[in-house]
């Protein structure tokens, strides 16, 4: 069945943890451009985005403080006046993908996470 074959792929990626505080999360080519994915990093949820025109992979909290749901990876990626953003799928606030800053409410800023790509593998760090 189709669904199972996908889950086998997952396991391979999941097990290649490194000794440092970098965690490998997926292959770079698993990430579609401008289409978020959610990563489990220890007990946290991180939304990661491969954005067209930006070298690095962007990573911010997956938790949407406005709706209280873990959904930011499912938002639409774009830009507002040149700032790369994701729009919350629930109530449509925009978050700067590079800084985590909410454009509609300056008191809200999401955590961001360091990301690197090593031999085609995407790695995240908790810092």
């Amino acid at each position: 069945m189709a669904v199972l074959s996908k889950k086998l792929d997952m396991k391979v990626v999941k097990n290649c943890k490194e000794q440092s505080d970098w965690t490998s999360v997926c292959q770079l080519d698993q990430l579609m451009e401008n289409y978020g994915q959610c990563v489990q990093l220890n007990q946290e949820q991180v939304a990661i985005f491969r954005v067209s025109g930006i070298e690095k992979i962007c990573a911010i909290d997956n938790f949407d403080p406005f709706s209280g749901a873990n959904v930011l990876s499912r938002g639409i990626v774009g830009d507002i006046k040149g700032v790369p953003v994701v729009a919350s799928p629930v109530y449509k606030q925009h978050f700067d993908l590079l800084t985590g800053q909410c454009l509609e409410d300056e008191t809200v800023k999401l955590a961001t996470y360091p990301v690197r790509v090593l031999d085609g593998v995407v790695q995240l760090s908790t810092k």
């Binding site: 189709a2 669904v3 889950k7 997952m10 999360v25 873990n70």
Partner: peptide, 23 residues
């Protein structure tokens, strides 16, 4: 969609785990 393994890959909460959303 259910006939296409590539499309199905997007249907998981985490890209790196089978865990569910604890929220």
């Amino acid at each position: 969609t259910v006939e296409d393994p590539v499309r199905l890959q997007s249907f998981s909460h985490f890209i790196n785990s089978d865990e569910k959303d604890s929220n």
